[in-house]
Design a protein around this nucleic acid. Structure first.
Length: 108
DNA sequence: GTGCTGACACAGG
DNA sequence: ACCTGTGCCAGCA
């Protein structure tokens, strides 16, 4: 257990992260905006602390780039969930296709 | 209260 | 596509 106990804000962030359906993703800023509290940095902080207990790969940069240091793991999940990826000319996955993979949050 | 840091976002080169 | 500078909010010493 790396966690004493998540704050209320942290619980909301983790809750939203768990609600993101497979094949979809949300950016840090999106989650903050969706919750209407904190900011991308705060969401990032929560993920850094307790993201290990949720689908952390579904939370990425607004640009769609992977989480540094976990590109390989994230990629494995994306391919398993069928997340729309955007590839470079080399054929290597450079990130997620935010245009199709972004999850508006149950409705949008 | 002040200063530094961080799983970010945006604009410019 | 990559690096730099600035803005933002919260946590810690």
């Amino acid at each position: 257990m790396v966690t004493p106990h998540p704050s209320d804000f942290a619980e909301r962030v983790l809750d939203v992260t768990e609600r993101i359906p497979p094949g979809r993703v949300m950016s840090y800023g999106d989650i903050a905006e969706y919750l209407g509290e904190g900011g991308p940095r705060q969401v990032g902080r929560v993920m850094a602390l307790w993201g290990g207990g949720v689908a952390w790969w579904r939370v990425i940069h607004n640009d769609g780039s992977f989480l540094a240091g976990h590109e390989r793991q994230a990629l494995a999940h994306y391919r398993a969930e069928g997340t729309p990826l955007r590839r470079s000319r080399d054929g290597a996955a450079s990130g997620v296709d935010m245009r199709r993979a972004r999850w508006p949050g149950s409705g949008g």
